[in-house]
Write a protein that binds this DNA or RNA. Structure first.
Lengths: 294, 294
DNA sequence: CCCACCCATCTGCGATGACGATAGGTAACG
DNA sequence: CGTTACCTATCGTCATCGCAGATGGGTGGG
């Protein structure tokens, strides 16, 4: 195998134009160069690629036809390598590790990842879902490059963040709960029943505060939703959790005079590792889709 | 893109051995050549591929890791091209057009084609099934390269042939036919009932001769089998047709004192176009599988 | 401290491959 | 039937590229 990529490129060009001289003109070479290059390629491969009937445009032989496909593929692959190098040169990531809060709404995230796969086909992805504290922890431990979480107060200083959108909280109880009969409730009524509150170990996380004396606590919106389904109390939950097909028919939305502020979805990353093109692209995608979602 | 296939090969070699000098030794080059080649490749791509910490073996950078995969793929593709050229140089076909008698038993043919696809992945196949005369006609008209048919007397002289195996004929009738009650029949009894005979326009084809005065004729074993199912007569059919799952439960095999000679399966091709490697390989495959089938 | 080993760099040289010119051949046209 | 306008193959010349070998800096082991 003594032949060149250049020879393959010439081969493809000549085959497509059915002319040696035309290929030479297009590729800014002397006609003789094309002629000898093809001749050498044919010698190397041990096969005639073109039928030269003088005066008639050169025609591919049967072997030439078959090898043209192979040559095209080699050239294509070489261009791929170059394109990949260009991307990497511009800081494109090889691997993007995304950590997200497990309660993040799925549709916009999955849509964004699908689009990302199209825009950066060579990018390798690693996904991790975790409870609220996990996302920041993974970023700090350099186990993730990009995080998707709900804004809270205890954000470490090493992390940069950007708000993407917000998700409203609603007050819900189970269909069999005493409050289910009421359409409008005020804070005093809520205080009389058990509250199911999402509270990670540290306070300062979003999701609302304790209202009455009876409170069960948990670290997951989904776990709390399950408890609500069993009429163990009322809860404040993000609207997308309430509207999950699994929960929706059995949950009752209450109109109350007060609900916690909406959850703010934030993108988070290490201040000392600036985002590459893929991460920035993904951020934009998240932003627009979350906006459409909210 | 000024880099070379050679540079890529060096890159892969160096990465696999984690050593410039080792790669130089293996590829019979001077160490300096490897060093400069990699340096030039890095300059072309605009990226460092290796981390050279003096004394420690060179380690791939993250970009190097990613580009190594791309480079491997380019080299692999180039080798594919060369292998293909070698095959074509040895007369390997680009396209193989097989024409077969529609009554040919499927399992051995399909098994052989499956094996062919494995042995010659790049080969393009075109299949055609036809009645008995069609196979030879297609070969003569250069619409097929290889034929699979049952031996008969009117084989054109332009065609070469090779016997692959034989398939026994059996005497059958439908379950509701008067003969179905008999286990053994002789020629005189057969002559008293309608015979369903496979006879293409020209005589001299295999499948038996007319026995009694009442005969229906057709050009397909399958059409005749359908008539037998409807108790319209008895027939001589190849054993593999009789044993088709569709027919088997409703057909009755008769033991008779005489049946036509077995069908001889033959491979046929044009004398003026010698078979290529793929065709010869397929012929061997047919032969062994038909032998196992019979 | 010396030796073995590794990688980068420099220099000289040879093979490779480009160019331009030339030759030969076909098709269209007057 | 010559002329013209193409096309491709071949040849001679020459620059360039990239190899080999030598050199030097560096590291780790005996």
């Amino acid at each position: 195998m003594r032949w060149n990529l250049d020879q393959l490129r010439l081969f493809v060009e000549v085959a497509e134009g059915a002319s040696f001289s035309a290929a030479a003109r297009r590729l800014q070479r002397a006609q003789s160069a094309v002629s000898t290059a093809i001749a050498l390629l044919e010698a190397d491969l041990g096969l005639p690629l073109f039928e030269r009937s003088s005066g008639r445009p050169p025609r591919l032989t049967e072997a030439g036809q078959a090898l043209l496909e192979e040559a095209r593929e080699v050239v294509r692959q070489a261009q791929r390598l170059d394109a990949r190098a260009l991307g990497l040169r511009q800081g494109e990531e090889v691997l993007l590790r995304l950590a997200q809060d497990e309660a993040m709404p799925y549709p916009p995230v999955l849509d964004s990842l699908e689009a990302l796969a199209q825009a950066f086909p060579a990018l390798e992805m690693r996904l991790a879902s975790g409870a609220q504290g996990d996302v920041a922890r993974r970023l700090l431990a350099r186990q993730a490059d990009l995080g998707l979480l709900f804004r809270h107060e205890h954000m470490p200083a090493e992390l940069e963040r950007r708000a993407l959108g917000s998700i409203a909280m609603v007050t819900v109880c189970g269909a069999g709960h005493p409050l289910a009969a009421r359409t409008v409730v005020d804070r005093r009524e809520l205080a009389r029943h058990r509250q199911l509150l999402v509270t990670p170990p540290q306070s300062g996380y979003p999701g609302g505060e304790q209202v009455g004396p009876q409170v069960w606590r948990g670290d997951s919106f989904y776990a709390m939703a399950e408890l609500v389904l069993r009429n163990l109390g009322w809860a404040w939950l993000p609207v997308h959790v309430v509207q999950y097909p699994t929960y929706r028919p059995s949950l009752v939305e209450l109109r109350s005079d007060w609900t916690p502020p909406p959850l703010v979805v934030e993108l988070v990353w290490r201040r000392d590792e600036p985002l590459g093109p893929a991460a920035r692209w993904l951020a934009e995608c998240f932003a627009t889709r979350l906006a459409a979602f909210g």
